[in-house]
Computed example of a mutant assay.
Amino acid sequence: MIAERLEKATPENWMFPPEEGWTADQVEDLELPFDWELVDGVVVVRGRTVPWHNYVRRRIERHLEDALREPYDVLSEQCVLIDKYNPPVPDIVVYDKRGIDLFEAKYIPVEKAVLIVEVVSPGSRQDDRVRKPAMYAAAGVPYYWRVERGEDNLPEVHEYWLHRERGEYIPCPERPCHVGKLETDRPFPVAIDLTALLKL
């Protein structure tokens, strides 16, 4: 049982997790010919993203980076360690960089995350709308943005704040859905012209 618990996931055995599930350390070196994520100790194939998704993610990350205030930093496609069985890879994470060694860190600890942004794509609708926000809220991440593709193909940003007593997200009271322009002061002031986001 101990040997089973200590083994590493490989391209040959990843689909047969130990009884308790794989841990983040056991899959950290796993290389597979597709994008994947560890969910409750099980390796799960991630839906393929489209250029719209990737372009929007990159542009929002750039705007957040331009608006950063100390002590925050921003990364895209970076594991956030919820627990050893759940290191999700959000599209964008804004985090408190204090105490994190850039050269040694494998993950962003969830207690350091202050804002997580997920850009919804056809293969991630259920995850981005239901599973992941519930998981991030339960872990105490203060703010969550869900970016949807509007009917005009422009991004719409749904802004959520953590209701700490209930342990779940509630829509931002002032403006739950940003269309045309995103303006918020949480976790720091940022303004994004959503109508110009896709201009080449």
Rank of each mutant, 00 (worst) to 15 (best):
M135R: 15
A67Y: 05
T195W: 03
P51Q: 06
K97A: 13
T23I: 03
K181R: 14
P155K: 04
P173H: 10
L38C: 05
P88H: 01
F16S: 07
V157I: 15
V147M: 10
P155H: 04
L6Y: 08
R186P: 02
I100S: 09
G180S: 02
V110R: 13
G47R: 07
F188G: 01
A196S: 13
P122G: 01
R125Y: 04
D83E: 07
R98W: 04
T10C: 09
T23V: 02
G150Y: 11
A139C: 13
V74P: 15
D152A: 12
E31C: 05
E37K: 05
N86I: 04
R59S: 09
V42I: 11
W145E: 08
R58K: 12
D73W: 13
R129H: 13
R186K: 14
D73I: 10
E28H: 01
E31L: 11
S124C: 06
E151K: 15
D193P: 11
A24W: 02
V147Y: 05
W161N: 11
P187A: 03
P71V: 04
G99D: 10
R48H: 11
E104H: 10
E70C: 02
V44D: 02
A67C: 12
E118L: 05
K97H: 11
A134K: 14
Q78R: 12
W22S: 02
K97E: 13
S124H: 04
Y107A: 07
E104Y: 07
L32Q: 03
L154C: 06
I92C: 14
E70V: 04
P176D: 13
L115Q: 06
R129V: 07
E104T: 12
R69H: 07
A67K: 09
A191F: 02
E65N: 13
V56W: 02
V80L: 02
R149A: 03
M135Y: 01
I100M: 14
L154D: 09
L154S: 08
L197C: 10
E7I: 12
E165S: 15
V74R: 14
R125T: 06
L6P: 03
Y143G: 00
L64G: 10
R62K: 09
I192C: 12
L200C: 01
Y72R: 11
Q126R: 14
Y95I: 11
E70L: 11
K199A: 07
P189G: 06
L30Y: 05
T195E: 15
